[in-house]
């Protein structure tokens, strides 16, 4: 019964999300696209975090997807839609190759290496003048769907839905057991037959595919990119802040965090230009200090306290 009602909620929200272009203009749809992009990145970051691995390389994979898609269209004459699939696959292959080296690292060593990789990708694109356009970046001959706002919105929404779907699968399948076991205690995980490296590699490749895909959708929707926009550190920092605020180790947490921070930042941008970044910083500090499990973590804790109190009254 409880399960059914939650399905209904999901269905209703999906329909509302799909129907947005019917009653919103170009500007709100543009804002929605930006929030959805960050939301997808926040969810994908969290998916890998469930194994205990903190990646600072979201912007790296995102930018890689942007460039792969843009250059496939520009240099290879690929169809823009197909180039999104290509870019996602390319990000996946890169993650697979890199994973063999970096997934042997743990904790801050892993984090710093992913951060460095992002920087390497950016510098490479910056300096490959003839191929990638160097610091000026690439300009596509046209924007996908001729720049029609509703179509761009739906494309981005499709990317987000796919991300949510995969994340939900991670929560409901044996991926959940494997990743949580690896996060909690690698020794126990090994003794229970979990092939730790394999599961880390699967999670790293899948989240990289999603991040590359969102980068490709972004570049096709704007029609241009530069090393500094594609590999903007904000694509790492904002998703991180959103996931932390909403609550890590879940799908719903990063989603809620993205809506809250996304809407707040749009509003703050109008009130105090660039001041929204200060507010972000403050939010991250406060969340880490006072509710490290985020909003949904607080709710979970409260529910647990209540059930414990109930149990002791039996």
């Amino acid at each position: 019964m409880k399960l059914k009602s939650s399905y209904i909620v999901v269905a209703v929200l999906s329909v509302i999300a799909i129907a947005f272009p019917a009653f919103l203009g170009a500007y709100p749809l543009n804002v929605a696209r930006s929030i959805m992009t960050y939301m997808a990145l926040a969810i994908s970051w969290d998916m890998l975090l469930r194994s205990g691995q903190i990646s600072f390389g979201i912007a790296g994979l995102f930018g890689l997807g942007s460039y792969a898609s843009a250059l496939a269209v520009l240099r290879g004459g690929m169809d823009p839609m197909l180039s999104i699939v290509f870019a996602a696959a390319f990000a996946g292959v890169m993650a697979y190759a890199l994973g063999f080296a970096i997934l042997r690292l743990r904790s801050m060593y892993f984090s710093i290496t992913t951060l460095a990789l992002m920087e390497i990708f950016r510098i490479v694109m910056h300096n490959l003048h003839d191929f990638s356009g160097g610091p000026e970046g690439v300009v596509l001959p046209s924007v996908i769907f001729k720049g029609a706002s509703p179509a761009l919105y739906w494309l981005c929404l499709a990317g987000l839905f796919l991300t949510i779907g995969v994340s939900w699968f991670f929560e409901k399948s044996k991926m959940h057991l494997a990743l949580t076991a690896i996060r909690n205690d690698e020794t126990s995980a090994r003794s229970s037959g979990v092939n730790i490296f394999n599961y880390l590699l699967i999670a790293f490749v899948i989240t990289s595919v999603l991040q590359g895909m969102m980068g490709a959708i972004q570049v096709q929707s704007y029609g241009f990119t530069t090393p500094d926009t594609a590999f903007d550190a904000n694509f790492t920092l904002l998703p991180l802040a959103m996931a932390l605020l909403g609550g890590i180790h879940s799908t719903i947490g990063p989603m809620a965090g993205a809506v809250l921070l996304g809407v707040a930042s749009e509003w703050l941008k109008l009130k105090i230009p660039y001041g929204h970044l200060v507010v972000y910083g403050i939010i991250i500090i406060l969340v880490i200090l006072f509710m490290p499990q985020g909003l949904f973590g607080l709710a979970r804790k409260a529910r647990r306290e209540r059930s414990k109190a109930g149990a002791s009254h039996e």
């Binding site: 057991l177 949580t180 076991a181 996060r183 909690n184 205690d185 020794t187 126990s188 995980a189 003794s191 180790h249």
Partner: peptide, 10 residues
Amino acid sequence: YQLIHPLENL
């Protein structure tokens, strides 16, 4: 294990 290894998030 001699030292207990519960998976506390499961």
